[in-house]
Nucleic acid binder design. Structure first.
Lengths: 113, 113
DNA sequence: TGGACGGTTCGACAATTCTCGAACTATGCC
DNA sequence: GGCATAGTTCGAGAATTGTCGAACCGTCCA
């Protein structure tokens, strides 16, 4: 088969709800993922230097997907993640940008000591 | 005594964390409160037409206070709530505004029937 | 076809959150 | 002082969330 463009279950644009988006972004781990995603563009799940079991990381990506924040596609044997900026900007203008800017400028990203 | 300017426990500006703010705003009930607060300026806790026991409402206000989103002060025998716009704008420019705008334009506010 | 690799899914457990009734505290008024 | 009002605090129970190990599935490569 092709082995491309196979998507995980994700909400359509109309199904995205603001509370769910905020809920997804309210976790330091996920906020860190989104921040990194915003800087890099597309990343595979394993490419985060996070000290976590696969299953925990997968859970966080699932939350991000279900809320409509990120899209995940097969690309070879990896899953590649990207921010759904178009959808989020259309629905909630400025929300994602300002949150990324705020998280990036401070040290509010990951729960550090 | 005076009976004014008595505050509830609230974080100082430096103690406010973005994830906690987003967490506070990720609940439809609280998002509705913030939205109403943004439009009216100051409101007492009981002045929301929400069908909820006092204790539940009080809980939500507590979350909003602890996260640094709202400030609460005694004013006579009422507690008056107001958004901490100055603090939030200084820490996370645009975040509160865009969220309020997004919540206000759509019907994402309260879990309606 | 049989690995190795990247992630997901499942089940379990602990921790947090939401909701509610009941009791309590503080204020203002008589 | 005594009472009504406004809201908090204190349990308790149900639901959701975060974390983890183990098993599973799809893709690539030899």
């Amino acid at each position: 088969m092709a082995g491309k463009n196979i998507e995980q279950e994700q909400p359509s644009r109309e199904e995205i709800r603001l509370p769910m988006v905020l809920q997804a972004l309210s976790d330091p781990v996920r906020l860190g993922i989104v921040l990194k995603l915003a800087g890099t563009g597309e990343i595979a799940c394993g490419s985060f230097g996070l000290e976590m079991p696969k299953s925990s990381l997968s859970h966080h990506f699932k939350v991000l997907r279900n809320s409509g924040v990120v899209a995940t596609q097969r690309e070879g044997k990896e899953w590649v993640n990207s921010l759904r900026r178009d959808d989020l900007d259309a629905l909630f203008p400025g929300v994602l940008d300002s949150i990324i800017a705020a998280a990036g400028s401070g040290r509010e990203t990951t729960a550090q000591g």
